[in-house]
Structures are given as C-alpha cells and as structure tokens.
Design a protein around this nucleic acid. Structure first.
Length: 193
DNA sequence: GACCAGATTGTCT
DNA sequence: GACAATCTGGTCA
C-alpha cells in the first residue's frame, strides 16, 4: 500500500483530481479492520458554476464541509436512506468536491459481504450508496481529513487518459449534460455500463 | 434484460 | 411540506 495522498493533490482542478483518483485506494481504517478498494468511478462537482453541486448555494449545516477546504471527507444522507461519500477539492479556495461512485473491493471483503448481505463482489461497492454501506461510512466520518482521518485515500495505479471514459452524471436534475463523471474503461465494478 | 414504484429522513424554503 | 448526487425488488417480456 502506498502513502496517503498529499493534501496538495486536492488543491487542483476538480476535474483533474476526479480523473487521477481513479486507480487510487480508498480505505476505511476502523477499530477492528481495514476495509476498502480501488476507486473505479468518480464524479466532479464544481461549486458555484455547477447547479447540481450542494455548494452552489450558500453554506448550510449540511454542506459546510465543502467549505472547509481541500482534502476532507464530505458525507451526507440522500433520499433518507443512503449516504454518499465525497472528497473536497479546492483549486482556488472554491468549494468543490469529487463524489466517489464505485470501488473494486480489495480489503476487508468478508466485512463488506456481511454488511451488504451479498456474496458477489460486484454487488458490494458498485454505486455510491452501496459503497458507503459496505465500508461502514456514516455521518461520523463527515469533515475528517482524508490523509489523517479514519478514511484515507492512498496513491495507486495511474491511468492514462486513454483508459478513462467521461460520461454524463447520474441521478441529478440539473446540469445533466455535463461530462463530469469519470470511470475506468472496461472495469466491471462501475455502477453502470 | 428494461422499466417502475416504494422506501425513509434530514435539510432547506 | 417538498425534495434529494439512490437502491431494491417487483412486473413484464
């Protein structure tokens, strides 16, 4: 396992960060065991210029983590049942974030199977709500630093632009047509083909 | 396989 | 009081 990514990594263009996070390792270091996998799908959310982004509007209790700066875990509840996991970025002190949509499970697989009550690896982390459940991520992890907190991101394989596909984002009602979703081509663990 | 409805709750207007 | 960066299980084919 490599070292946690430096905070400088997140202080860059959000789209660039979203692409480079592909192939990195997301690990939740719980008190009992380490759980995580390789990031295979992300989405960029671009602050004020992006109406689909939580921070497009003013700061609230819910989205304040996005305003803390780069390199924090931003966790929130969606549809009353699912959590979503993001990492904040900030090229120019802007409140932006990258949503982690899917992982390829590598560590703590038995734990994930118990959590998800699924046996197939493909069902463990192939979607934002699923991976938070599999990794036991909840609001307690909101606002933690991603280089020193329980949840950390480690450098991994670097993917070439050729191996990365861009597509429209999923599940949002505004700015749908922007190509801000990125995933590793031909990877089985993404949330959608 | 594709399409559709229901779950369920914190947060904002 | 409406809605949300989703998932699941049902139906129909």
């Amino acid at each position: 396992m490599g070292k946690p990514l430096d905070l400088d990594f997140y202080c860059r263009d959000t789209v660039q960060v979203a692409k480079e996070l592909l192939g990195c390792l997301l690990i939740n270091h719980t008190s009992k065991e380490d759980i995580g996998g390789i990031i295979v799908e992300t989405e960029a959310y671009l602050g004020k210029e992006d109406p689909a982004c939580h921070s497009a509007k003013s700061m609230t209790e819910r989205n304040k983590t996005m305003f803390k700066g780069a390199g924090f875990s931003y966790v929130y509840l969606i549809y009353g049942i699912h959590y979503c996991y993001n990492v904040t970025t900030s090229a120019d002190n802007k409140p932006e974030a990258v949503l982690i949509r899917a992982l390829e499970p590598t560590t703590g697989i038995e734990f994930m199977k118990r959590k998800r009550k699924k046996e197939k690896l493909i069902d463990l982390c192939s979607g934002p709500g699923k991976l938070t459940q599999a990794l036991d991520i909840n609001l307690n992890n909101d606002g933690q630093r991603v280089d020193t907190g329980n949840i950390r991101i480690y450098s991994g394989k670097n993917y070439d632009n050729k191996e990365i596909a861009a597509a429209k984002r999923i599940g949002i009602s505004t700015a749908k047509d922007l190509l801000l979703r990125f995933y590793i081509k031909d990877n089985k663990f993404i949330s959608k083909k």
